[in-house]
Deep mutational scan, measured.
Amino acid sequence: TEEVEKIVRELQKRGVSQEEIQRILKRNGIDPRDVEHVVRRLR
């Protein structure tokens, strides 16, 4: 989703690792598959 993408991009800008990003998003109830998808697209 748009929202997830924004969050991921923001965290990446701050130098947060992929694993940490995924952990944060999972904690916020976001589907890990969505996270994977977004992270892969932004690489």
Rank of each mutant, 00 (worst) to 15 (best):
T1G: 08
T1I: 14
T1M: 13
T1R: 10
T1N: 08
T1Q: 10
E2F: 11
E2G: 10
E2Q: 10
E2A: 12
E2D: 11
E2W: 09
E2P: 09
E2V: 09
E2M: 10
E3G: 08
E3W: 13
E3R: 09
E3T: 10
E3L: 12
E3M: 10
E3C: 14
V4F: 05
V4A: 05
V4W: 08
E5P: 01
E5W: 13
E5K: 04
E5D: 05
E5Q: 04
K6A: 10
K6F: 08
K6T: 06
K6W: 08
K6N: 07
K6L: 07
K6V: 07
K6I: 07
I7R: 05
I7V: 08
I7N: 02
I7D: 00
V8Y: 11
V8W: 07
V8G: 01
V8E: 00
R9E: 04
R9S: 05
R9N: 03
R9L: 07
R9H: 05
R9F: 03
R9P: 00
E10Y: 06
E10N: 06
E10P: 00
E10D: 09
L11V: 00
L11T: 00
L11I: 02
Q12K: 05
Q12E: 05
Q12S: 09
Q12V: 14
Q12M: 15
Q12Y: 15
Q12W: 15
K13S: 11
K13I: 08
K13Q: 10
K13T: 07
K13Y: 06
K13A: 11
K13L: 09
K13C: 14
R14P: 01
R14M: 10
R14S: 08
R14K: 11
R14D: 05
R14E: 07
G15I: 01
G15W: 02
G15D: 03
G15P: 01
G15K: 04
V16P: 00
V16F: 12
V16G: 01
V16K: 08
V16H: 12
S17D: 07
S17L: 05
S17G: 07
S17P: 08
S17I: 02
S17N: 06
S17C: 11
S17Y: 01
S17M: 04
S17W: 02
S17R: 06
Q18L: 15
Q18R: 11
Q18I: 15
E19R: 09
E19W: 09
E19A: 11
E19K: 10
E19P: 04
E19F: 06
E19T: 07
E19N: 06
E20M: 09
E20G: 06
E20D: 10
E20N: 06
E20W: 06
E20K: 06
I21K: 00
I21Q: 00
I21Y: 03
I21W: 06
I21C: 14
I21M: 10
I21L: 08
Q22L: 14
Q22P: 02
Q22T: 13
R23W: 04
R23Y: 05
R23F: 05
R23A: 12
R23G: 10
R23E: 14
R23H: 11
R23T: 09
R23D: 14
R23P: 02
R23S: 11
I24L: 09
I24Q: 08
I24Y: 06
I24D: 03
I24N: 02
I24P: 00
I24G: 00
I24T: 04
L25K: 02
L25Y: 00
L25F: 00
L25C: 13
L25V: 06
K26C: 15
K26W: 09
K26S: 13
K26V: 15
K26R: 10
K26M: 13
K26P: 04
K26N: 09
R27Y: 09
R27C: 15
R27Q: 12
R27H: 10
R27M: 13
R27D: 14
N28I: 14
N28S: 12
N28D: 08
N28C: 15
N28T: 10
N28K: 13
N28M: 14
N28P: 03
N28V: 12
G29T: 03
G29P: 01
G29W: 02
G29Q: 03
G29F: 03
I30A: 05
I30H: 08
I30L: 07
D31W: 02
D31I: 01
D31M: 03
D31K: 04
D31F: 02
D31L: 03
D31G: 03
P32W: 08
P32I: 07
P32A: 08
P32M: 06
P32L: 05
R33P: 02
R33G: 07
R33D: 09
R33S: 10
R33Y: 04
R33L: 09
R33I: 09
D34R: 07
D34H: 09
D34Y: 12
D34L: 15
D34Q: 11
D34F: 12
D34V: 15
D34N: 05
V35N: 01
V35Y: 12
V35M: 04
V35A: 05
V35G: 01
E36F: 02
E36Y: 02
E36S: 03
E36V: 04
E36P: 02
E36G: 03
E36N: 04
E36M: 05
E36K: 04
E36I: 06
E36C: 08
H37A: 14
H37L: 12
H37I: 14
H37P: 02
H37G: 10
H37M: 13
H37Y: 07
V38R: 01
V38G: 01
V38N: 01
V38L: 13
V38T: 03
V39Q: 03
V39T: 11
V39D: 08
V39P: 00
V39L: 15
V39G: 03
R40M: 00
R40G: 13
R40L: 00
R40N: 13
R41G: 05
R41A: 03
R41V: 02
R41C: 15
R41H: 12
R41K: 11
R41I: 04
L42S: 13
L42P: 12
L42C: 15
L42R: 12
L42G: 13
L42A: 14
R43F: 15
R43A: 15
R43G: 15
R43Q: 15
R43T: 14
R43E: 15
R43H: 15
R43W: 10
